[in-house]
Design a protein around this nucleic acid. Structure first.
Length: 326
DNA sequence: GCGACAG
DNA sequence: ATCTTGTCGC
């Protein structure tokens, strides 16, 4: 089985894992995340438990916080407490008594996130951080808006020379894979591929709402998209996932750009554009562009904090979601 | 309380 | 990402 099936069945495979917690024992969000293959998935675990299709049968009431406190419960925390006590768990002052003795962590799992990480590393080998040579004549910005598990991707296409929007495309698609930091591509890549299919004349470069090589393993959403499609891509994130700023961004001192490095290696830039912007955006090459090229391209579209093509895609994606919600 | 992890 | 009203400032 390839990694695509892991992505597709990720959620369905998660619930049987929860069922491994024996009656009379409890486990934690973090322990389940580790069983999935990454501690970063702890919040996604909470989200998936909250969306548990079969409460009690899938015993999400047996999942508590790592300090022994109860955490939340869809049917009310009182119900969670009642169910646990019914199973022999003693609770005092909102905490599981003798927590260390009843906590269960020995899940049997093939750790899907570990395997998805390996897939990312294979894709990473194909990422090229270098100029493509030819100039860009068309540029696109992509973004995705969400309503539960329904995604609304949008693409705004621009004439690079005249800085004019040529066209805008939107669509819809179901997503099952949850948002997990550093694993964003497995949730959003299908959305981006779907919207790109609707575009007749493929853009010369795509600006993506997420990171390129500015990723703990050098393979963010923009880079993944670039390798999968062969297109030139640039990553634009609104907050920092990893790395450290070399210089302090300071509007007063006219310092609007800083390198971002990870263990000494250049992985991208923090860029402050737009008069009202308070915080910088984080720019990194996705694929087929250099660091300088990425920064210059993004900068050329920054009338506001976020470059126009992405800003427009964001607006159109949200518009389509709102329309669909009524 | 601190630090904080794209969307 | 989404949940949400008014409000401060250019």
């Amino acid at each position: 089985m390839g990694y695509t099936s892991l992505v597709k069945s990720f959620r369905q495979d998660f619930y049987p894992l929860v069922c491994q917690i024996p009656e009379g024992r409890v486990s934690t969000y973090g322990a389940l995340a580790r069983a999935l293959g990454s501690e970063r998935a702890a919040r996604a675990v909470g989200k998936m438990l909250n969306e548990n299709p079969r409460p009690v049968e899938v015993p999400c009431h047996r999942v508590v916080m790592s300090d022994g406190s109860l955490g939340g419960y869809g049917g009310g925390i009182e119900e969670k407490k009642r169910l646990l006590e019914e199973e022999g768990i003693r609770i005092k002052n909102g905490r599981v008594k003798e927590f260390e003795h009843v906590v269960f962590e020995s899940f049997v799992s093939d750790k899907p996130l570990k395997r998805l990480r390996e897939e990312q590393k294979r894709v990473k080998e194909k990422v090229a951080v270098q100029e493509s040579g030819i100039g860009f004549s068309s540029v696109a910005g992509v973004d995705v808006s969400y309503s539960n598990n329904r995604a609304y991707p949008a693409l705004s296409l621009w004439d690079h020379e005249n800085k004019e929007e040529i066209d805008v495309f939107t669509t819809e698609i179901d997503v099952e894979f949850p948002y997990i930091p550093t694993f964003l591509a497995f949730r959003e890549l299908p959305c981006l591929l779907e919207i790109l299919e609707k575009v007749e004349d493929q853009p010369d470069v795509v600006m993506v709402d997420g990171n390129g090589v500015m990723h703990p393993d050098g393979i963010g959403l923009a880079s993944h998209l670039g390798v999968e499609t062969g297109m030139a891509t640039v990553g634009v994130a609104k907050s920092k996932l990893c790395g450290d700023l070399v210089d302090e961004i300071d509007r007063e001192k006219g310092k609007m750009l800083s390198e971002v490095r990870d263990n000494g290696k250049l992985i991208g830039h923090a860029l402050l554009e737009g008069k009202r912007a308070k915080n910088p955006i984080y720019v990194s090459p996705g694929h087929g562009v250099s660091h300088d090229q990425a920064v210059q391209l993004v900068k050329s579209y920054c009338r506001y904090k976020v470059p126009d093509p992405i800003r427009r895609a964001h607006i159109e994606a949200t518009k389509r979601r709102k329309k669909d919600e009524r």
